[in-house]
Computed example of a mutant assay.
Amino acid sequence: MHGPASSGWLLVALCAATGAYCLLRMRSGVEEQRRAAGGEALMGFGMAAMAVPAAVFAPPSWAWSAYALLFGAVGLHALWAARARPRHLHHLVEAGAMVHMSVAMAGSSGHRHGGSGLPLLTGLLLLYFCAYVLVAGVRLIPVPAVAGAGPAPGWGDRPEVARACRLSMGMAMVAMLLMM
Rank of each mutant, 00 (worst) to 15 (best):
L118K: 05
F71M: 00
R25N: 15
S6D: 13
A17T: 06
G46T: 01
H90D: 14
A175F: 06
H77D: 14
G107T: 07
P151H: 15
M180A: 12
Y67H: 09
V143S: 14
Q33I: 10
L125Q: 06
A106G: 02
R27H: 09
S65F: 08
M105N: 14
A145G: 08
A54I: 14
L126T: 09
E32I: 05
W9Y: 11
L69W: 15
V12M: 00
R158V: 00
P144T: 09
G117P: 00
S61Y: 03
H111R: 10
A131W: 13
A16D: 09
V146G: 00
L127M: 04
A36G: 11
L134Y: 10
L79N: 02
A66W: 10
Y132E: 15
C165V: 09
F57E: 05
L127E: 01
G115S: 04
A13L: 11
E160A: 09
A68Y: 13
V30Y: 14
L79W: 15
G137N: 05
A63S: 07
S28Q: 08
M101T: 00
L10N: 09
A13D: 07
G115F: 08
F71H: 01
E94W: 07
A172M: 02
A51F: 07
G123D: 05
G137E: 09
R35W: 06
A13E: 04
P119N: 02
V30S: 02
V138R: 15
R27M: 09
G170R: 03
H91M: 12
A104M: 11
A5V: 14
M101E: 01
P53F: 02
C22N: 13
A104R: 06
R166V: 11
G123Y: 06
L134A: 15
A149T: 10
L69V: 14
G46A: 02
A49K: 01
V30M: 11
A145Y: 00
R166S: 11
L14N: 05
G19F: 04
G29L: 10
V12W: 03
A95F: 07
A136L: 12
L126D: 09
A16V: 03
M179Y: 08
Y67I: 04
L120D: 07
F71T: 04
R34H: 10
G75F: 06
A175D: 06
G148F: 00
S108E: 08
L24D: 00
G170V: 00
R166Y: 11
H90G: 11
G3N: 05
H2I: 12
A164C: 10
L126R: 10
A48N: 07
G3V: 11
A84F: 05
M101I: 08
S108H: 08
L124K: 02
L23G: 09
A164I: 06
R166F: 11
A73I: 11
M171N: 01
L140Q: 04
E40F: 12
V138C: 07
A95G: 10
Y128E: 03
M180Y: 10
V146R: 14
L127W: 02
A63I: 00
V103C: 08
R85A: 13
A55R: 12
G137I: 07
W9M: 10
G154W: 12
T18W: 03
H2A: 14
S7Q: 14
M173T: 11
S109E: 14
G156C: 12
A152V: 00
E94I: 03
V12G: 05
L125A: 01
M105E: 15
L70A: 13
E94S: 13
W155A: 03
